[in-house]
Amino acid sequence: MTASRVILWRHGETAWNAQGRYQGQADVPLNDRGLAQAAAAAVRIAGLRPDRIVSSDLGRAATTARELASCTGLTVELEPRLQEINVGDWAGLTNDEVFAAHPDFAAALRAGRDAQRSASGETGAQAGARVAEALLDIAEGSPDGSTVVAVGHGFALRVAMVFLLGLDYAHNLTLGGLWNASWSVLQPGGESWRLLSYNNVADPV
């Protein structure tokens, strides 16, 4: 069995998104704008006739997913592997704060290299591989011809997408960041998928 479409949907905005803070796996809820974004996007995604909804178990993603469930009558399945990159004790910090405390990390990012997010966190490649593996399992575990919505997080989804397209980590820099509540559509094809559309959004909220 294999789904014919996988829709990757980033959660709506949180207060930490608006403030430019690292979230990682901290369970930060949607703010009012994020709730409105999720509701607006859910109506659009429901029009794509999804057959299954799988979400990260972090609250901001699961709440976003439930907006689509309310439009479609589908049940939300929780998948912890879809969580955002683990940033350890950097959660809650801004880029400026992280760069000031860890200039080597800042230099690596500016040079386009991957690096571990805090001593206890993941690298970008580790997070992307984890999410890509989950998406492969989700696609292959869905009925032939079905459309699956996977709800997750901006950075980890973007890197996973690059890996599923058969590209290496550095190519994630060629894609713009995923906007809050945006969705992208991929066509599974074993370990080399096709990107059909990217960073779609509902009317601005």
Rank of each mutant, 00 (worst) to 15 (best):
3 A>V: 04
3 A>N: 04
4 S>Y: 00
5 R>P: 01
5 R>K: 14
6 V>K: 08
6 V>T: 00
7 I>L: 09
8 L>S: 04
13 E>R: 09
14 T>N: 03
14 T>S: 06
14 T>R: 01
15 A>V: 09
15 A>Y: 08
15 A>T: 09
16 W>V: 06
17 N>A: 00
19 Q>C: 01
21 R>P: 09
22 Y>V: 07
23 Q>M: 14
24 G>P: 02
24 G>E: 10
25 Q>P: 00
27 D>K: 09
28 V>W: 00
29 P>A: 00
30 L>P: 12
31 N>Y: 12
32 D>K: 02
33 R>V: 02
36 A>Q: 14
37 Q>H: 06
37 Q>D: 07
38 A>T: 01
39 A>F: 00
44 R>G: 07
46 A>P: 02
47 G>Y: 02
53 I>K: 03
55 S>I: 05
56 S>I: 13
56 S>G: 12
58 L>R: 10
58 L>S: 15
59 G>V: 13
60 R>Q: 04
61 A>L: 06
65 A>T: 03
68 L>Q: 07
69 A>P: 08
72 T>W: 03
72 T>V: 03
74 L>R: 14
74 L>F: 12
76 V>F: 05
76 V>R: 09
77 E>I: 05
78 L>D: 04
78 L>A: 13
79 E>P: 12
80 P>C: 10
80 P>F: 10
82 L>Q: 04
84 E>W: 06
84 E>S: 11
87 V>D: 03
87 V>F: 01
89 D>Q: 13
90 W>G: 03
93 L>K: 14
93 L>S: 12
94 T>K: 01
95 N>W: 15
100 A>Y: 04
102 H>W: 09
103 P>V: 00
104 D>K: 07
105 F>C: 01
108 A>R: 15
109 L>F: 11
110 R>H: 13
113 R>D: 13
115 A>L: 03
117 R>V: 03
118 S>L: 06
122 E>I: 05
123 T>Q: 09
125 A>P: 00
127 A>M: 01
129 A>T: 14
131 V>S: 02
131 V>C: 08
134 A>T: 05
135 L>A: 08
136 L>T: 08
136 L>F: 09
141 G>P: 06
142 S>V: 08
143 P>E: 14
143 P>C: 07
144 D>S: 14
145 G>F: 08
145 G>N: 09
145 G>D: 01
147 T>H: 01
148 V>N: 08
149 V>Q: 02
151 V>F: 11
154 G>I: 13
154 G>V: 13
154 G>K: 12
154 G>Q: 08
155 F>T: 13
156 A>N: 11
156 A>R: 00
156 A>S: 15
157 L>K: 04
157 L>D: 10
161 M>F: 05
162 V>A: 11
166 G>P: 11
166 G>M: 04
167 L>P: 09
167 L>Q: 15
168 D>R: 15
169 Y>V: 04
171 H>P: 00
171 H>F: 11
172 N>D: 11
172 N>M: 13
174 T>L: 14
176 G>F: 03
176 G>Q: 00
178 L>K: 03
178 L>A: 01
179 W>L: 14
180 N>D: 08
182 S>A: 14
182 S>G: 07
183 W>E: 06
183 W>G: 01
185 V>T: 15
186 L>R: 07
186 L>G: 05
187 Q>V: 12
187 Q>F: 01
193 W>M: 04
193 W>Y: 03
194 R>N: 13
194 R>H: 13
195 L>I: 10
197 S>I: 09
199 N>M: 05
200 N>L: 11
204 P>E: 02
205 V>Y: 13
